[in-house]
Amino acid sequence: MKPINEAAISFLSRSANEGFARTAAACFAAQLDPTLDEVNDIKTAVSEAVTNAIVHAYPDRLGKVSLRLRLFEDGVLEIVVKDWGVGIEDVEKARQPLYTTGSEERSGMGFTIMESFMDALRVRSAPGKGTTVTMRRRISRRYSGGGR
């Protein structure tokens, strides 16, 4: 299926960009006229994926993180967060609740939150190459405005 709209940004893995990324995603989603709860779910899931790229993918250097947003005819928003960092050895294990390789500032709940806030979550990763997190969420259409 072809997207009806698409936007992408990329940024350095600085923590200040966490707020930027989730706000950008919320602004893009606004064209679907989402509810406040839906906007908050999108912001939360984007924050988790982007924070993982910033914290885990580049533990001792700055690297590039990209966020791509696509909107489909049926009201599905697709969010793709990609990094070119250390990658994940065992994705299935990493997705388990409470699993973390981080410090005590992490709780191992990021993937669990993404999963419960989105309709679908896919994680592709290769050690030394990087990680791609794809999330989908359907936004119920309440209003169809003009524009093209």
Partner: peptide, 13 residues
């Protein structure tokens, strides 16, 4: 105004 999993670690601490 916003909280993600980083807040979980704050509360657990």
């Amino acid at each position: 105004t916003f909280m993600d999993s980083s807040g979980i670690a704050v509360l657990l601490r």
